[in-house]
Nucleic acid binder design. Sequence first.
DNA 1: TTGTAAGCGTTATCAC
DNA 2: GTGATAACGCTTACAA
Lengths: 338, 338
Amino acid sequence: MKVTLKDIAQQSGYSITTVSRALAGYSDVNAQTRQHIIEIANALGYQPNLLARQLRSQRTQTIGLIIPARDNGFSNDFFTQLILGIGDAAALENYDLLVSAQKPGEEEMEAYRRIAGGNRVDGMILARTRYNDPRISYLKSRDHPFVVFGRGAPGEDSDFPYIDVDGQAAIQVVTQHIIERGHRHIGLILPPPDIAFTQYRLTGYQQALAQAGIPYRPEYVVNGDLLRAGGYQGARQLLEHQAELTAIVACNDLMALGAMKAVQERGHQVGRTFAIAGYDDIPAAEYAQPPLTTIHQPLHEIGQRLVQMLIKIIAGNPPEDTHLLLPSKLIVRESSGF
Amino acid sequence: MKVTLKDIAQQSGYSITTVSRALAGYSDVNAQTRQHIIEIANALGYQPNLLARQLRSQRTQTIGLIIPARDNGFSNDFFTQLILGIGDAAALENYDLLVSAQKPGEEEMEAYRRIAGGNRVDGMILARTRYNDPRISYLKSRDHPFVVFGRGAPGEDSDFPYIDVDGQAAIQVVTQHIIERGHRHIGLILPPPDIAFTQYRLTGYQQALAQAGIPYRPEYVVNGDLLRAGGYQGARQLLEHQAELTAIVACNDLMALGAMKAVQERGHQVGRTFAIAGYDDIPAAEYAQPPLTTIHQPLHEIGQRLVQMLIKIIAGNPPEDTHLLLPSKLIVRESSGF
DNA sequence: TTGTAAGCGTTATCAC
DNA sequence: GTGATAACGCTTACAA
């Protein structure tokens, strides 16, 4: 049924070794012999068994990636964009992707152990670093190649290869932009506190305020769940207790869209009497009403760079700089003013 | 470095065989022995080498999926949604996903041969059937388990397991909806002709017209590339030569959004003087201005069903009905009228 | 130039 | 209960 080297060896009269070397293009095989063997291989439709090859060579040409399972039908634009970038880059380098969907937690760690520890991949790519991230300590302890999208939180040890976008600068820029539009009472909707980049974003916000001489008020800041619902609730909470607010910066677009709804329900005109900004530049941001001012991250490029860095690490030639901070771009649309 | 059964065997004084069986939970191992072996395995941080296990057992617990690489021009929104559904369902069934991004063409076929023929996966999931699809004939000829999202074109042999959404009914319903809003001159932007579902959608459109007693005019129909650009161009072309049009149905949302732009540039008010509808219900549809009337396909459920059907086929117990046609849902928003 | 044999790490068969 | 031994299909010293 399944054609193996053995079958070709029998058909051709040569040994398995010779067949293997002929097909691998070794120079120490007689040209005629090789020709003959290749013809038989084609005739039989031979396909090398990659499991066997991988087991033997201890290389899989595969990159592992564990994405958060979606609990409730909510689609994660951010991760899917990233997968595409990673997938494209991996294909160019002749790597495949092994993807597993897991909810953060013990099962997720189990998947890391299974996939990384089980020799199914040559390296892993992680995203959305968490405080004291157990995935990172695990991979470090096993000396398993990996790269991360997102450094550790400030003060944490970020002694691992990562690529990150400077979210602090980004939030500072967007907050500054809002301030320049004349706002002085600006709310902030942060991600959950266990996400590593949360603190950077808060700092960026504070810096922008400080530069403009606006006092920082902790009561202007809430945490959301990175979904629309969280943005909606966060904004409602802010508006209820801090009626003087005229602007809200949300740390991702989904929350910004949720906030926009809450603000509009409150009777404000987003873009005229109230400013809103997001972060991520998901496709929906462009189509929002009004279109959402936001921060664009080059996700496709990030995916490529992650793959390239990882492949160098796998090969044992890590690049000199394994701590890459990429710039992002402020995209001004109508939600922050006309 | 890497802990194997052999290491545990040495540490414990038992043979590799016994260690293997102890860890696999076989009942013919002394309870104490097992306990002892498990402790050592944990202490050493043993992780079974899955490549070896798979090679030996000829099962990979992995589903293969080849998606179009990004620069080929198709919308990936659709595929990424599908991956999430498939990934979630696969995880529940203890399967991982092997994903490879390839441009349709010879390299793509090569990837199918490599991955399916190379024993890297137990089964494959295909999407977006093409005319005379070479991927399907290949997998059939190799007897490799697979399921397809999307049956063959009308008249083609669809003698393979598939799940599909009834795109004919869907387009009929949405066209009917447009007609009910009072339109009689309705353009249609189809997918490229080499996609299998294109003909179904055209038929649905024609049926709706016929039911309403509206004559079918081929000059009202153009093909687009499934991207915004194609919708934009298609709509411009239609508007230029058929000025009497007051509505356009596009066969996916991206093209509908492109068409919307062209229509608006022409001075029409979408939702008031002109109706537009799409297909897919991508997130951006909800946020479009005006929000887009469209067809919602249960992509997450489809992913789950694909996985479940495939797993049964892999196990040798194909379900009675391997030709599933799922309903879709018309989502009415403002783009088709207020 | 070609063949023999070992080994990657696991599981299954069969003795003892 | 436990342990040799073979086998999954491949690559690669080492011999011939």
